[in-house]
């Protein structure tokens, strides 16, 4: 399967990416607002409000403030959201309602290139959101540089991981409403239990083991480590996990979209 897929993907996928960029540029002023304002709201609510109650938290055997603990997790969550929502709802609208993929398939592009372009675009949106959030959070002095810059390529990798699984769901859901299911069963539990707002160690033992399966757990661990300036070989496991996740879900996404659209 991998060989067949790679044969049909040329650099032309960039045309699909460019198409989405053209559309994005029309509404960039609105698209900029959520990643700009969201961290501010969270830092205000959790840092000033909840942070007083929580006090300090142990991370990597150091005591850190609650706001510096959650700030990098907010970036990780945004990486997940941007790619996942782009390649579920937005891609589904393009595929199903607007028939954009049908139109492109009558040009020299292949379906594999369309899907690749869509996933790379989803990851690009993750990177854009990350850049804006890094800027905002850095103003509060919560990111250590230059190590913190590693979060940018990480956003791309994480974006591909979450975009691929999003596109996989797009390939199998019968209607757009069904996306509620993966969001309810997959995205929301990850949002809460991936070491985002409290350390995974606070969970019961079985739930700790379960959360290791979540890609967000690894992404959060990486963004948090980088923003505290920690670079450790242990982190390679988290990176490797995300790579393997992409290697499974990217071809799988193409496979189910092929089954759905080529009749």
């Amino acid at each position: 399967m991998m060989e067949r897929i790679s044969q049909r993907i040329s650099r032309r996928f960039i045309r699909v990416w460019q198409r989405n960029l053209t559309v994005y540029r029309k509404t960039w002023k609105i698209s900029f607002l959520p990643p700009l304002l969201e961290p501010l709201f969270y830092i205000l609510a959790f840092g000033v409000g909840l942070g007083v109650l929580v006090g300090e938290i142990l991370f990597d055997s150091t005591k850190v403030s609650y706001v510096s603990f959650i700030a990098p997790a907010l970036i990780a969550i945004n990486i997940m959201y941007n790619a996942f929502f782009e390649n579920t709802y937005v891609s589904f609208v393009r595929m199903y309602y607007q028939k954009t993929f049908d139109a492109i398939m009558a040009t020299p592009l292949s379906l594999e290139e369309i899907i690749t372009g869509e996933i790379i675009w989803g990851a690009t949106k993750s990177v854009i959101a990350t850049l804006i959030m890094l800027g905002v959070i850095s103003l509060f002095g919560l990111i250590t540089y230059p190590q913190g810059l590693l979060i940018i390529p990480l956003a791309f990798l994480g974006g591909i991981a979450f975009g691929s699984i999003g596109m996989f769901f797009t390939g199998i859901v019968p209607t757009i409403e069904i996306f509620n299911l993966p969001i309810f069963l997959f995205i929301t539990p990850m949002f809460l239990f991936s070491g985002t707002f409290f350390p995974v160690e606070n969970l019961p033992f079985w739930a700790q083991k379960l959360s290791i399966l979540f890609p967000l757990t690894h992404l959060v661990n990486l963004t948090r480590s980088f923003s505290f300036g920690i670079i450790d070989t242990k982190l390679l496991w988290d990176v490797a996990y995300l790579f393997v996740f992409c290697l499974i879900f990217f071809p799988l996404a193409i496979f189910v979209m092929h089954r759905r659209l080529i009749k």
């Binding site: 198409r19 559309v23 029309k26 607007q98 028939k99 954009t100 049908d102 139109a103 009558a106």
Partner: peptide, 13 residues
């Protein structure tokens, strides 16, 4: 050049 049956013009553009 292909003119498909359904109008699949790009409404975002």
């Amino acid at each position: 050049g292909v003119c498909q049956q359904e109008n699949n013009l790009d409404p975002d553009l």
